Simulated scan of single mutants.
Amino acid sequence: MALSGMTGFARVEGAHGAWSWAVEARSVNGRNLETRFRGPPGFESLDKAARDGAQARFQRGQLTVNLQAKRAETAGTTQVNVEVLERYLKAGGPYVATGMVGKPSLDGLLALRGVIDAREEEDAAEDRAMVEAAMAASIGQALDGLKAARLEEGAALTPILAGAVDRIDNLTSLADQEAAGQPAVLKERYARRLTDLIGESASEERIIQEAAAMAVKADVREELDRLASHVVAARALMNGEAAAGRRLDFLSQEFMREANTLCSKSALTALTTHGLDLKATIEQFREQVQNVE
């Protein structure tokens, strides 16, 4: 399974009978899966279709599914309310008779409030069910399109993440090479300090013992081994079948923990430099991982 991002957008249009609609599905980064559905009044039942569809396709991200629907204007009845019209004519009759106002026109009368009675026809239960089923299918198609868009983002992120892991691997190897010279440097450094303090009477045996104790405290072999094992784990996650975002995020924290310890134990300028480069690369890796499902 390829890596999937968490950002994407898809739009699907549909129609059935007198109804037409458009479904837009979009998502952004999120620690968990959150789905919001927005639709016209009367179609609240489609909220379940949106949530179930998202649950079946995604594991993380903040999703919004918008349904905009309209019904054809011909899908209804229009009639003149004669009773209301006659009341208007009766009320205005004396004014027309005395010449205070002119005779009313037909379009003026029809524009009066309550004269035209427009009613939408109610959908039959069977027709309504078919419309909602067709809308639910469109929601599924929009979520499929969103999944494809997120996979495209994941495909773009993969070489970036792989490149960062390769750099971490290379820097770990360079740090390993430098760390091999750390015991000798510690011994020389300790011998010089001890000589400065107690003069030439410092014995070689004592210098070796104290330097060995310092070397044990400054040994970075464990950190280097863990960094190397984390590199293997990161590559396995990126090539695995399951969603890897959460575990890659945790792994980036472990990478940084080892790099920090490496820097704190370093007694060599070159080793410290590699440690700082590791931290910078790991931070870049961590930032990109936030976009992975």
Rank of each mutant, 00 (worst) to 15 (best):
M256V: 02
N81F: 13
D196I: 05
I282W: 09
R57N: 01
A164F: 05
R26K: 03
V23S: 11
K187V: 01
L268G: 12
D249T: 04
P104K: 10
K48P: 00
I282L: 05
K147A: 10
L276A: 12
A244Y: 04
P183L: 11
F37Y: 14
A228Q: 08
A75P: 02
Q209G: 03
T64L: 15
F255N: 02
I208K: 07
V232Y: 07
V101Q: 09
G76K: 10
A25T: 03
L278S: 03
L194K: 04
V12P: 09
V289K: 00
E204N: 01
V96A: 05
E152K: 11
A179I: 07
V292Q: 02
E258R: 10
L33W: 00
M6W: 01
E200N: 11
D127A: 15
L33M: 01
L276W: 02
A97P: 03
L109R: 01
V80Q: 08
E153H: 07
A213L: 15
E83N: 12
L63V: 03
A259E: 07
Y88E: 13
L143F: 11
A75K: 12
V131E: 02
E188T: 09
F250N: 07
D219Q: 07
D169P: 00
R60T: 02
D107C: 05
G14I: 05
V115R: 07
I168M: 04
D117R: 08
A179E: 14
T35M: 14
G199Q: 07
G93N: 12
H16K: 05
A75V: 12
E44Q: 14
L106D: 00
E178C: 14
L278V: 06
L146W: 07
L171C: 01
E34N: 08
G154L: 12
D219H: 03
V232K: 13
T172C: 14
A218H: 14
L278W: 07
E121P: 09
Q253L: 10
C263F: 13
N239Q: 14
L174H: 13
V232P: 02
A69P: 03
L89C: 14
T172E: 13
S27Q: 06
A2L: 15
S266T: 10
R221D: 13
Q79K: 15
E83Y: 12
N81E: 11
E188P: 01
S45A: 14
L3W: 08
N81P: 06
I160R: 12
A180Q: 15
K103E: 15
G42F: 06
T35G: 09
L174M: 14
L3P: 03
R113L: 02
L276F: 07
V220R: 08
Q177W: 15
M214L: 15
F58K: 04
N170W: 13
L278N: 05
E210F: 08
G163R: 01
N32I: 02
D47F: 11
